[in-house]
Design a protein around this nucleic acid. Sequence first.
DNA 1: TCTGGGGTCCTAGGACCC
DNA 2: TCTGGGGTCCTAGGACCC
Length: 399
Amino acid sequence: MDEPRIAEPILHVDMDAFYVEVERLDDRGLVGQPVVVGGEGPRGVVASASYEVRAAGVRSAMPMSTARRMCPGLVIVAPRHGRYGEISEQVFSIFQDFTPLVQGLSVDEAFLDIRGLRRHYPNSLAVAEAIRTRIRRELHLPASVGAATSLYLAKMASGYAKPDGVHIVTEGSENAFLEHLDVQELWGVGRATRRRLASMGVGTVGQLARVPLPLLRRHLGDATGDHLHRLANGVDERVVEPYGGAKSVSVEQTFREDISGVEALRSRLLRQADQVAWRLRRAGLSGRTVSLKIRFADFRTITRAETLRAATDVSREVYQSCCRLLDRAEVGVRSVRLLGVAVSGLQPSDAPRQLMVDQEERWEHLEEAIDELRVRFGRHVVEPARLRRPDSDHAARDA
DNA sequence: TCTGGGGTCCTAGGACCC
DNA sequence: TCTGGGGTCCTAGGACCC
C-alpha cells in the first residue's frame, strides 16, 4: 500500500496588492477606486498598486509623478507600515495553522512546505484553496498561491496565479513551464543580468539552460553562473527555512530637498543613529558593523563602513561611528539627497560582551531608561537635545 | 520615467596570518 | 629576499527582491 504524498509540496503564498487591500479594508470608500499606496511628495514612488491602476500601466517602484500622469484621478494613500505589520501577523498565523514549516520572504509572502499534510489533503490544489479560503473568510483579503516541486518554481507560479488565483507547476512539467519564459521571469534575474544575457544572445530560459556552464560563469561570475544554470535546468535544492533572524537593521531617508554641509548632515545622522539603535534594542540585538550610505544629487551613491571592537546597541556609539564615517566620505559642500545608517553583524544583546568602560556603561543605563519612557509614552517623548534646539530644528520638518 | 525604504547576497581587492 | 598559496576578515559597490 502506497504512502500518500503531495506531488508539489512547496507553496508560495503571496498577498495581492497587499498595502492597497489593507487600506481598502480600513476605508471602504477606496474599494473600486484607482488607488496606490506610496509617497506623495515630489520624490515619492509607488509602493503598492491596485489592479485598477496596473491596467493603466502603473507599477510599484514607479515615480509617483509618472503614475499620476499615466492615471488621472489617481488616489494616493500614505503607507502605514505598522498596520501592514499587524495584518501580516494574522496572515502568518493562518500559515502556522497549516504547517510550522513557513519561511517568510516579506510582510506579504511566504513559502510553506506542506509535505506533512499528505494525510489531510489529497493534493496541493486542495491545500492552496484551503489557505486562500481562510485568508478570505477571516481577513477579507485576496491571496494568490503557487505550488511546485521547488521553491523558485512555486514563487514563479504564484506570479501566474495573480490576481486571486492558484497556479500549479505540476510534477514532471517543470521544463515545459520554463522553456519559453523570458529570462527576466526567473527569480533573481533583473535588468542588469537580463542585459548581459541578451548580449550573449540568450533571451529565454530554454536558451539559458543550453549555455555551457563555463561560459555562463565567465560572463556572470561563478556563484551567479552556477545558480542560474541550475535554475534554468529546473534544479533548486533550497528548502523551506523557517527561521533566519535579521542580518542587518537600517534606516534611510530621501530628503524633500537636497541638503549640504556637515552640520546639517550630522543632525540627520543623530536622529537616524538613534532610530537604528532603538530598533536594535527593541529586538534584543547588537551589531558590530556600522555603515553610512550617502546618495548625492546626481544619484551617485557611496557607502562607508567600519567594524567596531564590540557589538553595540547604544545610540551614541552608532552616532559617533557615523560621524567618523562621514568625515571619511569627504562630502564637502556637495548636495546630498539621501542619508542612511545600517548596523550589521548582529548578535543577541545578551551574548557575552567585551568589558565596557565606565562611560559607555552609564550611557547604556541612560538609554535603557529612555527606552522605558518611549514604551510607555511613545517614541517622541525623548529625543536627543540637538534635535529639539530651535536653530537645528529643520531636522524635524520633513521627517 | 528621474528614480522610496527595507532588506539579502555576491564580487573583488587589500590586509594579515600561517 | 622579492616570492607561493590558502584562509579569514574587512570594505565598497552593485544586483536584486518586495
